[in-house]
Nucleic acid binder design. Structure first.
Lengths: 196, 196
DNA sequence: CTGCTAACCAAGCAAGCGCTAGTGTGAACT
DNA sequence: AGTTCACACTAGCGCTTGCTTGGTTAGCAG
């Protein structure tokens, strides 16, 4: 079941919803709050979305689909060198994470509020994204610049990156790209990228 | 303001609350559900806790205090070698994370539902815990077995470890200790700890 | 026996919740 | 000119929420 954000109006509403979901959390965000933020009355909201859960699904789909597109594009453009691909992927991850910050925070922390049907569809999207990572990490393992179990390494790296939404300020001292490079440098101590 | 879990009755109620908060999330857990799980009526609950938010604070305090104690103890017992200390800290972290799993999952994902007064007190506890980590990582940096910015490395490592609650099954193939060792091995490729 | 306290219960209030039903309204198409 | 349709509104239903109130019970100290 594809949720689809066809109309531009709906896409805008989804963006606003994402912001509120981050501020308040899904459960504490009422349809009346959502409607007010959108400049309409609460009843009108159900013309665009069949129920509150569909709004959540729309938010998460939007963010995940974007992440997938950006990562795919970045990988296509960056050549075959395993170290470069690893760095590219880390950069792409943080780039989306802070470009679509609201949508991703919702995806990471409100995942469980999805109803089962939407959850199944969105898990496929997320798995596709994770597969890109496992692929890149596989290359790095074969090249001998990383060590360990492929899935384990992927999850450790994704964990470290996703956790950044908890403490990193994108307007602070470091750019997302620098942050990504620092993580890769920590993992690949043979390269002399101990700058910054 | 210390929340305190003085009475043993209250401690038991806190443990049950943690379980429900994990299952349902704080917002979706009603006082009636909590009361039923505890074998009492919803009104009686407010004899033990002044309001629902105090239950959340009690859960989080319990878990964080435990983590601090365990880590402190483990560090006191493990000598001065930086690599050993790093491994010890990672093991201690995963040990608490899955021993007091419910309390920690709540602490990680329901943090924002705390009211400001409790939040301030508990942030101090958490900062004290994070300080232990920064200390250990400082040693590792000075010894040259890790590279990068001290806070950055600490947060990447904590991110990778905390994220494990999302995918790791403590009853699966790997013990928490093995998991911790794999992470350290990934970070310290000079050591030949690529076993398991 | 009396007085005190911790622990509990029954009943229910006021507020807020997601969502529905029925009704315009103005722009676009026929 | 008539029809359609996307979009919005008003009003409120039925239910659940956190929490309060006033009272009961059992255990224990003097």
């Amino acid at each position: 079941m594809n949720v689809m954000n066809a109309s531009p109006r709906r896409k805008e509403l989804t963006r606003l919803a994402a912001q509120l979901f981050v501020q308040e959390g899904f459960d504490r965000t009422t349809v009346r709050m959502l409607a007010q933020e959108m400049g309409i009355k609460s009843g009108s909201l159900f013309h665009h979305f069949k129920d509150k859960h569909e709004i959540l699904a729309a938010v998460i789909e939007e963010g995940t689909q974007n992440a997938l597109n950006i990562a795919q594009q970045a990988l296509d453009d960056c050549g075959r060198d395993p170290e470069v691909r690893l760095r590219t992927m880390a950069r792409a991850h943080l780039e989306t994470l802070f470009a679509d910050r609201n949508a991703h925070v919702v995806a990471l922390f409100e995942w469980r509020r999805l109803d089962p049907s939407a959850s199944a569809h969105l898990r496929h999207l997320r798995d596709a994204y994770e597969a890109l990572w496992v692929d890149v990490i596989d290359d790095a393992l074969r090249a001998g610049i990383l060590h360990g179990d492929r899935f384990l390494v992927a999850r450790f790296v994704l964990g470290a990156l996703n956790w950044t939404v908890r403490w990193y300020d994108p307007h602070g001292a470091r750019t997302p790209d620098e942050l990504a490079d620092e993580l890769v440098a920590m993992l690949l101590p043979n390269a002399d990228t101990t700058n910054v």
